[in-house]
Simulated assay, not measured.
Amino acid sequence: MAIARPVRALGLAAIMMWCFFLWTIFRPGAGIKGPGDSLANLERDPNLDPTGEPEGHLVHTSDAYLPDANPSARINATLLALVRNEELEGMLQSMRDLERTWNHKFNYPWTFFNDVPFTEEFKRKTQAVTKAKCNYELIPKEHWEVPSWINDDLYKESVKILEEHDIQYADKISYHQMCRWNSGLFYKHPALQNTQYYWRVEPKVHFFCDVDYDVFRYMHDNNKTYGFTINLYDAPYSVPSLWPETIKFLAQHSEYLHDNNARDWVTDKLRRPSHNDQASGYSTCHFWSNFEIGDMTFWRSQAYEDYFNHLDRAGGFFYERWGDAPVHSIALGLFEDSSRIHWFRDIGYQHIPFFNCPNSPKCHGCTTGRFTDGEAWLNMEDCRPNWFKYVGMG
């Protein structure tokens, strides 16, 4: 018996709808949360579009932010810098920029860390740049010294291998110590015991844009854990065993993996397959931690404490050149809700040669330079397209 034409049409439509449904689930890039279904659709740097203040609850300046305000509107947060005495001029430059564009309105304290005592000149000149309180702290020896389980002969041999791959600072033991301290020890300093939020500031950086809201209150009131401006690829030969060690850790602690994680960003192999291959499954995408605004509650969590201790015992901070940027980024990408990681697109920032340059009348002296077309945007060292692809702009 022949099937009526309307029934055949309905059946064909049902088959086509079912095929479309399957395609939407299993197509390449399914599950991508960012703007567009592929990197090819990111035709230009989003900072070329007009940039305003972020959405969400914002608190602007008032008399409650004056240096001696009592009560004060400031929350328990600090501007934080690990800096040497000989980096004084570079630190003054960074302070002047950030005080001019933001902190003179809010007067958050500065906390400086060093593995040797600060000179009186350093203290005098930095305090003269700000009306806010400055704190000068010495890093405990047990936080800075090379751990007892690191084999010196193996370290020296490892340095040779790193140098063969042109890994910068491979032979500088102080650089390895710094990376370890920034990764898992800075937030344990007694001076920060009662501090929750920090804004990391490096010497010789620039801030270009006037920011008129309290960024720490923004983080707190909008439930954000971590803020970044720049997102880059790392040198894969500096971290060849970081991801394998992470996989070992996850095998023992799968309970720490967040349901809304950014693992696809951490492990992407489409845009830079050679990086993924050389880094043993890690994309090498990382937040440029020379700028980071963070909630130390995350670093103090059991998940991160266990993860750092696992990495520390593995020795990669010395036998390789694991930086705090990839360590922080992998941990955030796996253990935190990705919606709590925020791109501060409105904060103009430069750490030569990298920069974040918003299109805003509040920005002065910041030029977009090479971010002028899709090809330049997609072929540079910037990994933000991958973050936008898998997570969104936050």
Rank of each mutant, 00 (worst) to 15 (best):
L378Y: 07
M380W: 14
K141G: 05
E164S: 15
D210Y: 03
R217I: 00
F228M: 08
A30I: 11
P385K: 06
F308V: 01
A314K: 14
D382A: 04
G281K: 07
Y237A: 05
M16I: 15
S338V: 08
V327T: 15
Q177N: 10
N76R: 13
N194H: 14
C363N: 11
L10K: 13
P6Y: 11
D337R: 07
W102A: 07
P67G: 12
F112E: 01
A13Y: 10
Y213F: 15
G56W: 13
E89P: 03
A9M: 13
F20N: 13
G316Q: 09
C179Y: 10
D324E: 15
D382I: 08
F291Q: 11
D306I: 00
D171N: 15
S338W: 04
S158T: 09
R8N: 08
I75M: 12
T297E: 13
A30C: 13
N309R: 07
Y233C: 03
G227K: 05
G56M: 13
H253A: 01
T229M: 07
T284A: 06
K389A: 06
T367R: 14
M1N: 08
V116F: 09
P353G: 12
W377S: 08
E336T: 11
S238F: 01
F118R: 07
Y187G: 04
Q302C: 01
E157S: 14
I32A: 15
H176Q: 09
D37N: 11
A128L: 07
N76L: 04
I75N: 11
A303C: 08
F355S: 15
R340T: 13
E157K: 15
G374W: 00
T119K: 06
K362M: 10
M380D: 15
N379F: 08
H104D: 09
R272P: 09
E145I: 05
L88N: 02
G294P: 00
L378E: 10
E99S: 01
D324L: 03
N47Q: 10
Y136E: 01
W265C: 00
N151E: 14
P244F: 01
T195D: 07
R345K: 12
S183K: 02
E43T: 14
A170M: 04
G52L: 05
L88Q: 02
G369D: 12
Y319T: 11
H176T: 01
P361F: 10
L22P: 09
D268C: 03
D373V: 01
Y319K: 08
M17R: 14
D221K: 11
P190A: 09
H258W: 07
